[in-house]
């Protein structure tokens, strides 16, 4: 499989705390990579480093290299803002823009990138909502506020919003942890469907979710990458004892 991203000895700090202690791993194209591990292991920080979102908070620091295609995204010449339109992100809690309608939420990214033609926007919004599996539910009320939707719908709206700017990679930070089982199912189906178009990296604390949807799984513990393998292999025969302990529920 082709590789899409690669981190090399990636270290990250939050204030004085070192969250990541040197992560080296590849992320494959058109696959779903799941990151699992107990809370506080640095899995969220890791994907926030992949589109340079970690640095928007104060007192944070990143060292090491992250290769995207053949570019180090932490190189001087890279514009983090542009990078983030190529590597999208969906957050733990659905965060549609509260002042905007459903349509405007999806169109927001495009508009602010300077695309103004109505037909173009209409097409893009419909396409993104289709991809997110939300179109049939909201097509008659596109002008309603985005926050009027249910939690699961809001999260899919956020996915549509992220897809609208055509990212090559979609980072998902525990996207279903705040949702009910039915909505979680929707998001999982969606991820599997989307992987043919975008590369997905998903952080989850739900092992079953990782097992169900991901192609590759990485196990993080206290800022270290313990094991990284094909999901099947990892869940059936983990090579590290700590991974085994974790997936058999002995801690975390």
């Amino acid at each position: 499989m082709a590789q899409r991203m690669r981190t090399e000895n990636l270290k990250a700090w939050y204030g004085m705390n070192q969250i990541l202690k040197g992560i080296t791993m590849d992320i494959e194209k058109n696959a779903i990579t799941a990151i699992i591990g107990p809370s506080g292991c640095g899995k969220s920080t890791f994907i926030r480093c992949l589109n340079r979102m970690h640095e928007v908070n104060e007192g944070t620091r990143v060292e090491g290299k992250v290769w995207f295609e053949d570019q180090d995204i932490y190189a001087q010449s890279i514009d983090p803002v542009e990078l983030r339109s190529r590597i999208g992100m969906v957050f733990q809690k659905p965060n549609p823009f509260p002042t905007m309608s459903i349509f405007e939420n999806v169109a927001a990214g495009l508009r602010l990138h300077g695309i103004r033609r109505t037909s173009e926007l209409n097409d893009a919004v419909e396409e993104s909502l289709q991809m997110a599996g939300l179109w049939n539910e909201v097509k008659d009320r596109l002008q309603h506020p985005g926050v009027s939707l249910s939690g699961g719908q809001q999260q899919r709206l956020c996915i549509a919003r992220a897809l609208a700017v055509k990212p090559e990679i979609l980072l998902m930070d525990e996207p279903a942890s705040a949702l009910d089982p039915v909505s979680t199912g929707h998001i999982e189906d969606l991820a599997i469907k989307l992987k043919h178009q975008v590369t997905i990296v998903i952080v989850t604390h739900n092992l079953h979710q990782a097992a169900r949807i991901s192609d590759r799984t990485a196990f993080f513990l206290s800022g270290d990458l313990i094991e990284y393998d094909n999901t099947k292999d990892m869940f059936i025969s983990p090579s590290d004892k700590r991974t085994n302990d974790y997936i058999s529920g002995r801690f975390g």
Partner: peptide, 20 residues
């Protein structure tokens, strides 16, 4: 979370401030 949602779309900080 609103600001982060905006940054994650590749929207720059000043546009995030003005438009979001």
């Amino acid at each position: 979370s609103m600001r982060e949602g905006s940054y994650a779309l590749g929207i720059s900080k000043w546009r995030t401030i003005l438009h979001i």
